[in-house]
Design a protein around this nucleic acid. Structure first.
Length: 414
RNA sequence: GCGCCGGUCGUAUAGCGGCAAUUACAGGAGACUGUAAAUCUCCCGACCGUUGGUCUACGCUGGUUCGAGUCCAGCCCGGCGCA
């Protein structure tokens, strides 16, 4: 691994791929498994770094696409890199911008999820790529070709282009501890033929990302800039076993510092796809599951050998009044909470639960007070982070399976 | 007392002969998985089992009309003006 990095496994879940470990980065250690909070634009929405810290957060994931557009990677670089710029002194990651190929491409305007019910993805919906060469439909904001992706800014329509080389270059400027190879996140309803094509392209892009990362690292080394960033390669392949395994073999065969698992999954059956991959990827390297964060999903991700995962769910849902409790998710704006003077979750130790009632939170949301978003985000993030932390402890104690069963039994009983 | 203007679904509005009736807010519910997201979707007169049907509705009472928030008359209430 790169200077300044190491990954050490402390204990495994017997008969499973899951493990507890420690991922060391130049900005501190991450005890894994760990939930990575999402700070797309170099801010975890509604939270100061101090508040974020109070949730137990260890690491923040920002986004190359967004920071490139605003304020520009050079500005972030001059600000000392994402971490320094945003006032976060812990470890950071940046996503490569590959996901935006999906969210601004096939999913443009559809609010489409990359997790899809088995019944509803049979190959052709309205927006799957109509031909391999054409890639994504033209009325989206992106156009994919084998060399890279051209896209329009969703903010002002200006034209831009990302290639694997460019993504890595930007990520070097952003300076996060862990960066990702540029990939294509194909839509879940794409034909298998297209998934295969996108995967092959992602592999070629991965190789180019790796090459450019080496070149840039060597270059900066000459300048004695003491730059140290770990590069993770991304496995794709959608929900197809043969593609997932092939992708794991290809990506796993290169000298990445760790791996990302991206793309779309069947709802409720994500663990299986993750297992296909993690059985192949080398055990000593860390694995990050990109963008996953349903509560049951987190359990199967950990059980099947993922060390870190990020998800917008806790923070995004917090801002819409959807709050997590040990018994399931509630919508705090429901009429029944108006006069409920109990804490959100009696067992929760977070600042919000220790100091405020459901009735107060309901009031803040109904009157659209800004504090609502902060208090809700603190709670939801704490909930996710504690949950994963407890999974880690359960692994160390050799009680993961029991913990999982007990937790999930109680959960979803709103 | 006279003159003008106005009274519509919780509130504010639209409507000028064929609407259970516009829009906004409020209210009710749901969604959200590498953040175009402090966002989006649905419901919101009552009743029936949806498509749909029945009833009750636009201050009150009558009238004109096949048909009336919509036209006419009287009344009630509010605002403004003149006495």
């Amino acid at each position: 691994m790169q200077d300044g990095f190491s990954f050490k496994i402390e204990k495994k879940i017997s008969h499973h791929l899951g493990r507890a470990g420690v991922l060391r980065t130049p900005h501190g250690e991450i005890e894994t498994p760990a939930f990575v909070s999402v700070g797309t634009k170099a801010t975890v929405k509604a939270l100061t770094p101090e508040q974020l810290k109070s949730t137990g957060a260890q690491v923040v994931l920002a986004n190359t696409f967004h920071l490139y557009l605003e304020p520009g990677e050079k500005t972030v670089q001059r600000g000392g890199g994402v971490g320094k710029f945003m006032g976060w002194n812990g470890p950071t990651m940046t996503d490569s911008g590959g996901f935006q190929v999906f969210s601004l491409g096939a999913a443009f305007g559809l609010r489409q999820s990359k997790i899809v019910n088995k019944t509803h993805h049979p190959a052709s919906r309205t927006r799957h790529p109509s031909s391999i060469e054409e890639g994504i439909r033209s009325e989206t904001l992106v156009k994919i070709d084998d060399d890279g992706v051209s896209f329009r800014s969703p903010y002002n329509g200006s034209q831009h282009r990302f290639t694997p080389e460019r993504s890595i270059e930007i990520q070097h400027a952003l300076g996060a501890d862990i960066i990702f190879a540029f990939d294509e996140c194909a839509p879940p309803d794409a034909l298998k033929e297209y998934q295969r094509h996108a995967m092959a392209r992602t592999h070629r892009w991965a190789e180019r990302s790796l090459q450019n990362h080496k070149d840039l690292s060597a270059y900066s080394h000459e300048l004695a800039r003491k730059k140290s960033q770990a590069l993770f390669g991304i496995v794709q392949g959608g929900r197809h076993e043969d593609l997932r395994k092939e992708s794991a073999r290809v990506i796993g065969g290169w000298e990445f510092d760790g791996f990302g698992i991206g793309g779309s999954f069947d709802k409720g059956d994500m663990g299986t796809a993750v297992r296909w991959v993690n059985e192949i990827l080398s055990e000593e390297k860390p694995r990050h599951l990109l963008g996953i964060g349903g509560v049951p999903d987190l359990f199967s991700a950990v059980e099947n050998g993922c060390d870190t995962f990020d998800c917008v769910a806790p923070t995004r849902e917090a801002r819409t009044g959807s709050l997590y409790t040990r018994k399931g998710r509630i919508n705090i704006t429901n009429a029944r909470f108006r006069k409920d003077f109990s804490p959100l979750d009696k067992e929760c130790e977070c600042y919000t639960c220790k100091n405020f009632t459901r009735a107060y939170l309901a009031h803040l949301f109904r009157s659209r007070e800004l504090l609502a978003y902060s208090l809700a985000s603190i709670h939801n993030l704490s909930f996710f982070i504690m949950l994963v932390k407890n999974m880690r402890q359960a692994i160390l104690d050799g009680k993961f399976v029991k913990f999982k069963e007990e937790f999930l039994h109680q959960y979803a009983q709103v």
